[in-house]
Design a protein around this nucleic acid. Structure first.
Lengths: 253, 253
DNA sequence: GAGTGGTCTAGACCACGTT
DNA sequence: ACGTGGTCTAGACCACTCC
């Protein structure tokens, strides 16, 4: 029963109560919550009020509701740890991208499809690639699937001058991938910088990545630099935050 | 006006329409959306339906609503870039933690408060610190403020054996901070690993960090290792995802 | 068919901010 | 005083799942 005089909205009291019971293990991961109509009786409020409370927990990623079945406590997703800062020349040759290796390790059959297009640099891209706004870019859109299911979307952008008449403008970049082609062209890689952020997904991303409510995405922008410090490539990735964790390692000195 | 026969729920149609108008710039950042009662007329649906649509946009972090004023398009927050993998011995001496330096750079007067406590290792901590579950830990809770406003919470955990009878068990660790004390005790730092994830905040975190709806947090767990590879410290941080971006740099080879 | 969540209505009253 | 969002009700009907 909710306290009508506390000043705390009824749906908030219900949400807090449910949250505490979940935290205490009274409703364990995978358990079904009481039905909305049951809770109407328990708490003495109307169904829309109960639903507002449940909506809150859903937005927090605590529960999921399944039409016709019930509301369930979300079991913690098994998160996949991805070691970054490991893109050594050797590793680049072995793996064809970190994510393909991941998928293989988890027993999924990975597949990717690539599309090539060209566009003009916006201000963010121009900054990262040290080109002027509007400069021509080669863009490689890569969609990665595990067992047919979209797991990751990666967009790679390069200054067009660096790619004209190279295999990088082909869908199949050949043995060793795009980095190998770039090194053949005299652009030896010097370093990488990754910028990591997080936000809520757009509806498109949510359906593509099959995200439950209350699951944010991590955005990773990796910029590859030549030995002279010239930016060679910018790679944007979007990852489901309940499935991945990124690990970075570096020496203390 | 919503299409009643499309099968798409009315609140979803309204949300999509508003989202498109925001994306197109028809409602620019900072602009006020039409009032809910106006939209009731425009779209020909009831107010709860309009509210459900607006709730959706709020959960996506697209708009914020202000009681008594209106609903506004969220201006993109100015994100602060934090360069990690820069904790050189020199830099550690200069800065007293990366975040204090950040706050100073932005013109805020930073302040921190520290509490010391002791606890037993749970399974996650035990794994990271390579101790057995239940082992005694020294815990330093640090709350960082900028102009009195909580900006960050950091929890540092160390095996108690390494800290007994050292200044690390004191609130004030002295000149050079906790790392300096550890190096004096013969534990020279060898490397760091940071694990980065993201999730929706708990209600506590949301109010402490003053997060708007639809803003996730990034979680950063940094483990410091000795030169022999022994884990010395584990540091958990929680950051507002609309205020920070993490940058990691490493050589290509 | 019975039970579940999903959508929607037409109101009501409250709390807040502005004028 | 007025307009805004915030909360809440008591229903109704639909869509889905399971028996």
């Amino acid at each position: 029963m909710v306290n009508r005089k506390s000043g705390v909205p009824a749906f908030r009291q219900v949400a807090t109560d449910l949250r505490e019971k979940i935290a205490a293990g009274q409703y364990a991961p995978g358990d079904q919550l009481p039905s909305e109509r049951e809770m109407v009786e328990t708490y003495g409020v109307s169904r829309p009020t109960i639903r507002e409370a449940v909506d809150m927990l859903r937005a927090e990623g605590l529960v999921t509701s399944e039409h016709g079945r019930g509301v369930f406590v979300r079991p913690p997703a098994s998160i996949q740890r991805i070691a970054r800062s490991r893109l050594s020349r050797e590793a680049r040759g072995r793996n064809r991208g970190a994510f393909l290796a991941d998928a293989a390790a988890r027993g999924f059959t990975p597949s990717t499809s690539v599309k090539i297009r060209f566009e003009e640099a916006d201000s963010r891209t121009a900054t990262h690639l040290a080109v002027s706004e509007g400069a021509e870019l080669t863009v490689r859109d890569r969609v990665m699937r595990a067992d047919g299911l979209v797991v990751q979307i990666a967009v790679s952008r390069l200054p067009r001058e660096l790619t004209r008449d190279t295999a990088i403008e082909q869908v199949d970049t050949g043995k060793g991938g795009a980095y190998a082609r770039r090194e053949e062209a005299g652009h030896t890689l010097g370093s990488f910088i990754e910028h990591v952020g997080a936000r809520m997904p757009t509806p498109d991303e949510a359906s593509l990545l099959q995200l439950a409510d209350g699951v944010p995405v991590m955005t990773v922008t990796r910029v590859a630099y030549g030995e002279d410090g010239t930016p060679l490539e910018m790679n944007d990735m979007v990852l489901a935050a309940d499935r991945y964790e990124l690990s970075y390692e570096w020496p203390a000195d």
